[in-house]
Write a protein that binds this DNA or RNA. Structure first.
Lengths: 103, 103
DNA sequence: ACATTACTTAGCCGTTTTGCTAAATATACT
DNA sequence: AGTATATTTAGCAAAACGGCTAAGTAATGT
């Protein structure tokens, strides 16, 4: 393992981030979840998210989990509700990747 | 089939575009292909592309095919060489999608 | 015509993804 | 304590993905 100044991230870390993010964005349901949370003001409960889909709730739960693992969603529990927050900063990594094509 | 003014695209067409593009971008090899072609000036032969990978050539051919089907690559044959061109315009659809999160 | 170069297509096969149902968990309500 | 509500976890099966090898095609060189 290579030693680095604290704060410096391995280049691999960013690669892995792209990997997780782009894989997460590959499914239309997941893109739709992100978009909907955004339009709802940035936060939404699992229930409300599941409501928008015809698929069974566990299917949606799993999509949510993929998004969270990719760092695109964060969640907090309030009583029996699970509230999901959009991580816009993380989504900006997509733009960062795209910007490689303008330099 | 619904009639529309010429030039107007079905909203579904854009959805399908996102679908194809984001699926294509989900694989690291495919993201790398796009990036490399860009840095090589926008065009590259199949052979040069395949050269950068350790995987067998047909594997790369398939990745290329996915990118082309998504409209991110276009190709033209010159003699026995197949020259692939990056479609930067198409890649901008990713930015368009991202921009939904800034309005 | 035959060999070589530059690929693509076909098809198999293991792995991952994504859908489902059933069961578990955890909080709140009575 | 028992029930209802909100949501996750487990586990299965079908479909999609991504790797490979072998075979095909289409130009070019001899």
């Amino acid at each position: 393992m290579v030693q680095r100044k604290s704060g410096a991230k391995e280049p691999t870390a960013r690669m892995d981030a792209y990997e997780a993010i782009f894989s997460a964005l590959a499914h239309p349901a997941r893109r739709r979840i992100l978009l909907t949370i955004y339009f709802e003001g940035g936060t939404m409960t699992a229930g409300k998210i599941a409501e928008m889909f015809e698929s069974a709730w566990p299917t949606t739960t799993r999509h949510i989990r993929v998004l969270e693992t990719a760092g695109l969603l964060r969640h907090e529990q309030q009583g029996r509700h699970h509230i999901y927050h959009l991580e816009r900063k993380r989504l900006e990594l997509v733009r960062d990747w795209l910007n490689w094509f303008s330099k």
